[in-house]
Nucleic acid binder design. Structure first.
Length: 962
RNA sequence: GCUGGAGUGGUGAAAUGGUAGACACGCCUGCCUUAGGAGCAGGUCCCUUCGGGGGUGGAGGUUCAAGUCCUCUCUCCAGCACCA
């Protein structure tokens, strides 16, 4: 056990009491002297136990809060509890306690733990989402959205978790399973409340760009929004049963991002839930089979559907669709690989250029029509025409390849150039015979269109345009004739038969690969290129013709988003009651403001109600509704998703006790947006996106002052166990912070977490006990230094060391690079330890810089080494001496101390370091070279000669080129 | 598969294009000690004929100079994923 230089339990207690007595952390929001800075971490849900991850989240944000105060900012650093929701409810049920009681007991316990880590949060701003004083305003804001059509009541297929007996948001379904309990999710049809986040999709996307957030955070939000630009196209439906066109107005509307491939559409697919299937029911010949398929898929969970990538589907017999480009009739299928909830719930299938359609077409033997050829060359001036071929030859399930030396193109299929007026088939057979000796060939297929590509032949110094015919042969017998190679071909290649897999992997030439894909069932071509088989569009660039094609077939250019409206209804007890009542006809009405908060009834609890909301069983709620609204009126019995509670809590921090408004307009103007919001990666998509949406909606209603709520977003990494595994109760490897605090003190734990690695990175840091010990030893060494303080003036060296540290520590804290900040403190301490007497002012500055990291120890040292001494602060009146180390100002850096008169500068010869000179950073080139040439090593490597070139960057480097 | 991010000692990690490995952990040697899981001092990328040489996943390139910039490639992590 370490020999402790201080009793951490004692000093922590005293320091925390002192801060409370001095009321150090209460922010005066109306202060006009200092710059306001709103620093926030994600408020926790009351789990009842603070783990090391909480420490990482709260204590490290606290370092910045303490620093900002010392740097003269007016800092708002609040805390609250996200106390509604499933975790509390499940924990309470497990413990057999009423949910509210369990929740508030857990909050009380966590408050104590948070104080123990020395966080300087302002408890006077605390918000608790399950308090009626808070949720009154959640309800009020919800009704504002309802008033403006942003909260809607509608029937929809919803994700239902049978175990938790609740509806889930799309975002709470992971791989078709419930995010919380892992149960397979089912689909149900219920009337639910939705918030219209889809109206804000575009703004949520574009407003992301200027935010100074990490790219991965922005990217994951973009992925959720899922913007894709394309077109809606209509396919008229005709029925075989009644050709006299009773259905001529019926059309299937599809969404596609690839209208350029319209000529390659060989069938159309509807999602099983598509309403048009019901409309067409009378003319569908195989109605029973279709109905059965729809039944089966509806029973399948989302997970089963997407996990099984094997395509299933049923043809709608008796119904055909008209391809609007070719005017040909094509079949219509129902298949569950098409999602009802995306786009129009119907797709045009282009098997030649879409992988999913390709797989489906193969399975159902549907035609595959290629309409995009890859572009392999680049435009040339005055190209000369050239006829070429690429031939795929199959035999025995293997493909004939010519394996050229790497510099000649590597593995290719058979290619060649036609002689004057030669038929491509003849060219191909001639080339195959010449290069491989095979002659017994059968032509299977010949591509309708040639592929064109322009290139420049350096060997001939000429530009060409090649018109390549793609051909597909089968070998009838493997008899070989002698080959007839040209001299320059001999020994340059091997003839090899390879499997399809190997061919796909090794053939790199895009044109050859394309020919192979086209004929030999490799895959479809999803890239760009020029159109073929596409009528008047042939030869055009596919990206260019999109708009024209959409117009030509009477379609409409549109943008589609993957994000769905936010489903906020929950069939749970422990949530904010939805302030809506229904009249006897079942129409929803807002609960008038005077009845808010619309309180959660107390005569029911979690677990009441089977498969429906527990509130349904509340007599109290029903009686209340009838008393206020009259006979026949009923309450809304669902509660709000907890993400609604957490979408605006940062507004309430500004005015947590306000009974007349959700927050204070003047304070919001002054304090918003939040300067820095620190949190975990688990909340970077859902919570952040919802909060941004909610805030934007309030902005449009004139209720908040800006359009984005959070200026900076910082995501912390993850603390793992010493083996690098995730901490979990199941593994039994959870580090209990309380034990660590008992052993080493809160400051050592804080500092270790800060020192592990950069905070704002997606890093994973192992928890090492030796690391905590090291921090404790470091603090012990600082305490030891206090034993030899003196009142001498610090030397210039000491002053420089202090200035350097203050500069580095300050800038690193701002960037949350606590690891390098602490290392700068260590460098400083290492230096001070070499002194026999420590100047008091220097020590005071060290303690000042240590204070944000180790608030208790710093407070202790401040009191014992400085304040109690008559030499505390020269000349200052007792009353002017700050009572706490945390009231000191961050050291002001004397810039002149950061630049030194002489530095050690590296000297390179021909880019390699050959020596160093001690020189002024302002030295002239002549001086620097003269100093360098005095170095024997430098002279040696210059081999006596004078440098032919000199690169001199003052203060950085001198590089001499012989 | 797509999109983003990242690859540096035994470990966590440093490094405005300018001395790679700061600061620590661990390990090694020595001192002190009845003892060490305390403290102190020193050492710790690799090779070396002791002159040097090599080294930041790999291969090229730009530059006087590359961990850092560019191209290709491999690996890992994260998000999305039957999204048309």
């Amino acid at each position: 056990m370490a020999k402790n230089r201080f009793d951490h339990t004692e000093i922590e207690k005293k320091a925390q009491e002192k801060w409370a007595a001095l009321d150090l952390h209460q922010t005066d929001l109306t202060d006009t002297e200092k710059d306001p800075y709103y620093l926030m971490f994600e408020f926790p849900f009351p789990s009842g136990d603070l783990h090391i991850g909480h420490w990482y989240a709260f204590a490290l944000t606290d370092i910045y809060a303490r620093f900002l105060r010392m740097a003269g900012k007016n800092v708002l650093f609040p805390v609250g509890f996200d106390s509604f929701g499933l975790p509390a409810e499940n924990a309470a049920m497990k413990n057999g306690q009423p949910t509210p009681e369990w929740t508030y007991a857990a909050i009380e316990k966590m408050r104590g733990q948070m104080r123990s880590m020395g966080t300087s949060v302002d408890w006077s701003k605390e918000v608790i989402t399950s308090d009626p004083e808070y949720y009154k305003w959640t309800q009020w804001l919800f009704l504002k959205l309802f008033e403006h059509g942003l909260a809607q009541h509608r029937e929809a297929p919803v994700k239902w978790c049978p175990k938790d007996a609740t509806v889930l948001a799309n975002e709470q379904v992971i791989d078709g399973k419930c995010e919380r309990c892992g149960t397979d999710v089912e689909e149900k049809h219920l009337t639910q409340w939705f918030l219209k986040i889809t109206d804000y999709a575009e703004r949520l996307l574009t407003d992301l760009d200027p935010l100074p957030w990490r790219e991965d955070i922005k990217e994951s939000q973009r992925a959720w929004i899922g913007k894709s630009e394309g077109a809606k196209l209509k396919f008229q439906v005709v029925s075989a049963k009644d050709a006299s066109t009773p259905n001529d107005s019926v059309a299937i509307e599809v969404f596609t991002t690839r209208p350029d491939t319209i000529f390659g559409v060989t069938y159309v697919v509807l999602a099983p839930e598509h309403p048009l299937i019901d409309t067409l029911e009378p003319v569908i010949a195989n109605g029973e089979a279709v109905a059965e398929y729809r039944q089966t898929t509806s029973r399948k969970s989302e997970r089963e559907r997407s996990e099984n990538k094997d395509k299933t589907g049923v043809l709608l017999e008796g119904v055909m669709a008209i391809n609007p480009a070719t005017h040909k009739e094509i079949p219509v299928y129902v298949a569950d690989y098409v999602l009802a909830s995306y786009g129009t719930g119907a797709v045009m299938a282009v098997p030649a250029h879409d992988e999913r359609d390709f797989v489906f077409a193969k399975k159902f033997n549907l035609p595959i029509k290629y309409v995009i050829d890859p572009v392999t060359g680049s435009p040339q001036e005055n190209p000369q025409d050239k006829q070429k071929i690429v031939a795929i030859v199959e035999h025995d399930n293997k493909i004939l390849t010519i394996h050229w030396k790497p510099e000649l193109g590597g593995r290719l299929f058979v290619g060649g150039t036609a002689e004057e007026g030669e038929d491509p088939v003849v060219t191909a057979m001639r080339e195959i015979a010449e290069e491989t000796g095979y002659t017994d060939l059968e032509l299977i297929e010949r591509a309708e269109e040639q592929v064109h590509h322009e290139y420049f032949a350096h060997s001939k110094n000429k530009a060409f345009i090649a018109h390549t015919t793609l051909l597909h042969f089968r070998l009838k017998s493997d008899a070989q004739q002698p080959t007839a190679l040209e001299d320059n071909e001999i020994g340059k290649f091997e003839v090899e038969w390879v499997t399809r897999e190997q061919a796909i992997k090794e053939v790199k030439d895009p044109l050859h690969l394309y020919a192979f894909n086209k004929f030999a069932m490799g895959m479809c071509y999803t890239g760009d290129g020029t159109l073929s088989n596409s009528g008047t569009f042939n030869g055009r660039d596919n990206r260019e013709v999109m708009g024209e094609i959409v117009e030509a077939v009477g379609g409409e250019v549109t943008t589609n988003y993957r994000i769905r409206d936010w489903l906020v209804s929950r069939q749970r007890y422990w949530g904010c009651p939805i302030p809506i009542v229904y009249d006897p006809e079942g129409n929803p009405h807002a609960v008038p403001a005077e009845h808010l908060p619309w309180t959660l009834p107390t005569d029911v609890d979690s677990g009441s109600g089977k498969g429906e909301s527990p509130l349904k069983a509340s007599k109290e709620l029903q009686a209340r509704v009838e008393q206020i609204f009259g006979e026949g009126w009923t309450p809304e019995c669902d509660t709000l998703d907890v993400f609604v509670d957490s979408s605006w809590y940062f507004l309430r921090y500004l005015d947590p006790k306000d009974e007349h408004d959700f927050s204070d307009q003047a304070l919001m103007k002054k304090w918003l947006p939040v300067n820095r919001y620190s949190g975990g990666s688990e909340h970077t998509t859902v919570h952040l996106l919802y909060a941004r949406f909610f805030y934007k909606a309030l902005y449009d209603l004139g209720l908040v002052p800006t359009s984005e709520p959070f200026y900076e977003r910082y995501n912390r990494g993850l603390v793992l166990d010493s083996e690098g595994r995730k901490m979990s109760k199941r593994w039994g490897n959870v580090v209990n912070p309380d034990d660590m605090v008992k052993l080493y003190g809160a400051d050592a734990v804080r500092m270790y977490l800060a020192f592990m690695g950069p905070y704002n990175e997606a890093g994973h840091y192992p928890w090492k006990l030796t690391g905590v010990e090291a921090m404790r030893k470091f603090l012990d060494r600082i305490v030891t230094l206090s034993g030899r303080l003196s009142d001498e003036e610090p030397t210039e060296n000491t002053l420089r060391a202090l200035a350097k540290a203050a500069d580095k520590v300050g800038t690193d804290i701002v960037r949350f690079k606590y690891n390098t900040a602490i290392s700068a403190l260590m460098v400083l301490v290492n230096e001070l330890e070499t002194l026999t007497a420590i100047p008091r002012t220097a020590y005071r500055e060290l303690i000042t810089m240590l204070a944000p990291f180790a608030p208790h120890v710093s407070e202790y040292l401040y009191e014992n080494s400085l304040l109690t001494s008559s030499h505390a602060v020269n000349g200052d009146e007792e009353s002017e001496v700050p009572k706490s180390v945390h009231q000191l100002e961050w050291p002001v850096i004397d810039e002149s101390l950061l630049t030194t008169e002489t530095i050690i500068m590296g000297v390179q010869v021909a880019g390699k370091r050959r020596g160093e000179v001690s020189i002024s950073p302002e030295a002239t080139e002549e001086e620097a070279v003269a100093a360098a040439l005095a170095q024997p090593d430098v002279l040696k490597f210059l081999e006596g000669g004078t440098p032919s070139r000199i690169i001199y960057v003052p203060g950085r480097i001198l590089n001499l080129i012989p």
